[in-house]
Design a binder for these strands. Structure first.
Lengths: 152, 152
DNA sequence: ATGCTTGTTGCAAGCGGATTTCATTTGGAG
DNA sequence: CTCCAAATGAAATCCGCTTGCAACAAGCAT
């Protein structure tokens, strides 16, 4: 049973420590937020959640931690097609298997989809183009089932 | 034979006129730049080219024209994975057939790739998720054949 | 435990892409 | 030609993000 107030060291934290990255109080908070997020968060949302846990945390630290995680390939950065004119980026823990993001242009809902076909597509690209894929970003905008059912 | 100095009305221009959009001198210039671009341009590059043709053109007009084209689904907006820390967006005339963008993380080259597999993937999504796809954005970062051949 | 070294943090200032506001101009229908 | 809704340009502004720097702390060696 984990002690109250003591977060179980998440995978992100373990991964960073294994790579010799110094672990600070602020980083632990930010990593925990990203690990336990139920939806895609942008830097501003991560900052707000982090400040709820520790009001002293600065947005610079959030940006630097996100940059660190990107450099280590532990998070993916998304635009989600700038839904609603947003220009901020969204972040998610890099999944073991790539997935496609579908953004409903009407209700704003984000859906994810994994497909064997996508894995085959990547394999085709690596073979036919001699291109070694390091990171993928697949975003599709459109209209979800619910929205298509409703009158305009 | 087209008259010198008289650009043949491009497809973008014809498309906009057909939709009842007012055609101005500035828009004609910007549309022509996008149509004849040999590589992906960002708003700043479009502005510079436009000002070479007409120094009075303001960046606001470029942004508004790009926004208009996006609204009409005539151009696609890309991030190209913010290569080199760039935060600007790139634009291309919407192709008749979607394609995948590959960005080399070392030399910055952008490659494009069309695939029947991608068409099948889209069909699968529309069927399995009941999601009507309006726009796609597929960007992959990695290392191109030339860069992989060279020593680090 | 203690001290040291180096990476990290917070604050303030700054950067750059994109947008808003509003007075002026202009396309193009009648 | 006239007219007016739509488009433009100029300045100011917004907003996400980055940089410079002094103070601080992680974690290794002792």
């Amino acid at each position: 049973m984990p002690m109250p107030g003591t977060a179980a060291p998440g995978r992100l934290q373990a991964e960073l420590i294994a790579r010799g990255v110094r672990m600070t109080r602020q980083r632990r908070i930010i990593l925990e937020i990203i690990e336990s997020a139920s939806k895609h968060l942008d830097a501003g949302a991560i900052l707000r959640k982090a400040q709820a846990a520790d009001p002293g945390i600065d947005r610079v630290t959030v940006y630097r931690t996100l940059s660190l995680l990107k450099r280590h390939g532990l998070v993916d950065e998304l635009d989600l097609l700038h839904l609603g004119g947003q220009s901020a980026h969204f972040y998610e823990r890099r999944p073991s298997r790539d997935h496609i993001h579908m953004a409903c242009l009407r209700c704003g809902k984000i859906m994810e989809f994994e497909s064997q076909l996508f894995e085959r597509l990547k394999a085709q690209i690596q073979r036919d183009c001699q291109f070694h894929i390091a990171v993928t970003r697949v975003e599709m905008g459109g209209y979800c089932a619910e929205c298509r059912r409703q009158p305009l």
